[in-house]
């Protein structure tokens, strides 16, 4: 898929990813980390694992105080508020 085609995968012309789920996982250095799974506008799924600082920042930016509250949130909006 080209970048231009990627941008056409949602009605707004943008990749409207939403948070599908978030889970606590064990990080490489023994800290609890936050694994966020995203569902992208093109139907693809991806994940990223955030270290404690980024994980807490993400919860704050999303106005969430627990994992369940992240589900369904629009990803670009959360990132913009980080």
């Amino acid at each position: 898929m080209s970048a231009a085609a990627a941008l056409s995968c949602s009605p707004t012309g943008l990749d409207d990813a939403v948070v599908e789920a978030a889970e606590v996982v064990a990080g490489h250095d023994g800290a609890a980390e936050l694994m966020v799974r995203l569902r992208h506008g093109n139907g693809a799924s991806s994940f990223v694992t955030l270290d404690p600082a980024a994980g807490f920042d993400l919860l704050r930016a999303a106005g969430a105080d627990n994992l369940a509250a992240l589900a369904g949130r629009p990803w670009r909006q959360i990132i913009r508020d980080l």
Partner: peptide
């Protein structure tokens, strides 16, 4: 920004782009 959390969410200072970075220019593939 949304496709590259490793730069725009996880880094200090946030958003600092480095010459070694991989910057995705499309969403994950289906």
């Amino acid at each position: 920004r949304a496709w590259n959390l490793h730069i725009f969410a996880m880094r200090k200072p946030r958003g600092l782009m480095l010459g070694s970075d991989v910057v995705f220019v499309e969403p994950p593939l289906t």
